[in-house]
């Protein structure tokens, strides 16, 4: 009996450690694999050239990834700017002001939105967002945009991320004990003052991490963005122009044109870049969380 328990104890410990190490090793394994596969391209180009070069002509052996990186960043930042205030106020309203009934009504709605496959968001983008931009937004700015644009990508991405970030923010706000809010009210604060100074302040680290996870997810999102962003290789500041994000590059071209030398390695490098940027975003947000904790 005793021996049996010790053995199961040991064994379960072993399996837990094994599973954990697998999880911890995964990014390392993937990163190394991508790095090895992209070595040929490193040998021919400097990293600087690869990352900040804008000339993309694989047949001539020129691989400048900047148009893709810039598009990705642009779309992501746009979606971030659009979704941050919406998520923030919606989550605050739901957790601090809404009646129990409304909350029960919104949860399934949020869950459905969060669970929809991204193709559906893409289709919706093509049917609604793209025409809206070409017919309504573009004429206002005197542009003849087709609608397939960075702005369309940003909007679709924002809508995709909202339920995801919203879910996390709701959890974050719910963890603030009501006694703390009551303490603030008892001191003579109005309800809004209590929400602002106590609920939001207390949740700060959680808010930052919710947005961090949201932005990292947004950066890697592929299908829906690819369907509406236009996929033209160019560097532009005009959001009504088309762009070509990094994940789209990989998804569109992998498995094709293997006859072009180095193309394979270039796509591996793109994947490596994606991994690296998401890692950097995570690190930045980890740092922000750390900063808010020690303050």
């Amino acid at each position: 009996m005793r021996v049996g328990r010790i053995i199961t104890d040991r064994a379960s410990g072993f399996w837990m450690i094994l599973s954990l190490s697998l999880i911890l090793l995964m990014p390392v394994i993937m990163g190394t694999g991508l790095f090895m596969k992209s070595i040929p391209i490193w040998e021919q180009n400097s990293p600087w050239q690869l990352i900040f070069g804008s000339d993309w002509s694989p047949t001539r052996g020129n691989f400048g990834f900047w148009p893709f990186i810039a598009s990705s960043l642009y779309v992501t930042i746009l979606s971030f700017v659009l979704s941050v205030p919406v998520c923030f106020f919606a989550a605050l309203y739901l957790t601090q002001y809404a009646s129990e009934k409304l909350i029960r009504l919104t949860y399934p709605a949020i869950d459905i939105l969060a669970g929809l496959p991204s193709v559906i968001y893409g289709v919706w983008g093509i049917l609604v967002v793209v025409p809206f931009i070409s017919k309504v937004v573009a004429p206002v700015f005197g542009s003849n945009s087709s609608g397939y644009s960075i702005l369309a990508g940003g909007i679709v991405l924002a809508i995709m991320c909202i339920p995801y970030i919203l879910n996390m923010l709701i959890e974050v706000f719910k963890t603030v004990p009501s006694g703390m809010k009551e303490a603030s009210l008892a001191l003579g604060a109005s309800y809004w003052e209590s929400v602002k100074h106590v609920v939001v302040r207390k949740s700060f680290a959680g808010i930052v991490s919710a947005y961090g996870l949201g932005i990292a997810k947004a950066f890697g999102e592929t299908i829906a963005v690819m369907m509406v962003v236009g996929n033209r290789i160019q560097v532009t500041v005009n959001p009504l122009e088309a762009g070509y994000p990094l994940p789209a590059l990989i998804a569109n071209n992998y498995g094709e044109m293997l006859s072009i030398p180095m193309y394979d390695a270039a796509l591996m490098f793109a994947a490596l870049l994606l991994l690296a940027i998401i890692l950097i975003i995570n690190l930045i947000f980890r740092y922000l969380i750390y900063k808010t904790h020690i303050e």
């Binding site: 004990p177 006694g179 703390m180 009551e182 303490a183 603030s184 008892a186 100074h197 106590v198 302040r201 207390k202 700060f204």
Partner: peptide, 13 residues
């Protein structure tokens, strides 16, 4: 009225 609750709730500041 000053309120003192069962558990202290210092404000996050």
């Amino acid at each position: 009225m000053g309120l003192l609750s069962q558990r202290p709730y210092p404000l996050p500041m």
